[in-house]
Amino acid sequence: MGIHYFTEEQVKELKQNPNVKSVSIKGITYHKHFKNHFLIEHAKGKLPRQIFIEAGFDDEVLGESRINNSSNRWRKQSKRLEGLNDTRQRNLGRPKTKHLTKDEIIERQRLEIEYLKQERELLLELERLERLAIKKEKLSPGKNMKSSKD
């Protein structure tokens, strides 16, 4: 149970499959049309292994864990807002900085000020409640002593 790398021959074989977008010795990227086909066939009751074999893949080359992991990943992705779209290209590295207009800058600052005001009000309320709890505790030390003597 470890990482299963492909041999150069297996990479060449996988590149010939029309369902493969790209392949390296470490992994495969499948075309979106194959992922959609997979989900449709899986919904009809076919097993993941069977779908891959019918699509021209050698299940011995891919391995059971790679097939099952792809199946689980695609089913989860299909429920996302982005669907099966590959989001890796958009999520690499630092976020791109956007040049904001003066109105956008003002709006962001206005929202930040509003947020900070609300945060300040919450902290003041917490301090007030803490002072109130301490005051109540000081006013009723007899109850605490009686319960500790019993």
Rank of each mutant, 00 (worst) to 15 (best):
G93T: 06
F38R: 00
E64A: 08
F52S: 08
R128M: 08
A55G: 07
G45D: 05
P95T: 12
G45L: 03
R94P: 10
R49H: 04
L47F: 02
S147C: 02
N19R: 02
L39F: 06
W74Y: 03
T87Q: 09
E121M: 12
R131S: 06
E60A: 14
H37Y: 01
S148E: 02
I106E: 13
G45C: 11
N72M: 14
F34K: 02
T7I: 09
R75A: 07
G56S: 06
K35L: 01
L39W: 06
G93D: 03
K149W: 00
S70N: 08
Y115D: 12
P18Y: 01
N91Q: 14
H37I: 03
L122T: 12
L132T: 01
H33L: 04
E130M: 05
K146H: 06
R128D: 09
V20Y: 06
S24N: 15
K21F: 10
S78A: 05
A43L: 05
E60V: 15
I67F: 05
V23G: 03
I113C: 01
N69V: 02
K35T: 06
A43M: 00
E130V: 05
I25S: 15
G2H: 03
R131T: 09
G83W: 04
K102A: 05
T97L: 07
K46L: 13
D86R: 03
D58P: 05
E9G: 00
T29W: 11
N17W: 00
L100A: 13
S22F: 04
P48V: 00
R75L: 06
S71V: 05
K44C: 03
N68Q: 07
E112R: 02
G2K: 13
R66P: 06
V11I: 15
Q16N: 13
H99Q: 08
K76E: 10
M1R: 08
E137W: 06
N19C: 07
F57I: 09
K96S: 02
T97S: 08
G142T: 06
K149N: 08
N36C: 10
K138W: 04
H31E: 14
G56N: 00
K12G: 07
I67M: 01
K79I: 12
E60C: 12
R73T: 13
R49M: 09
Q50D: 14
N144Q: 07
I40S: 05
K149Q: 12
G63Y: 04
S24C: 15
E114S: 11
H99K: 12
H42L: 11
I113A: 05
E41V: 09
K44Q: 06
F6T: 04
L39I: 04
K26L: 15
A133R: 09
L92G: 12
H4I: 15
R66S: 14
N17F: 00
L123P: 01
K136R: 05
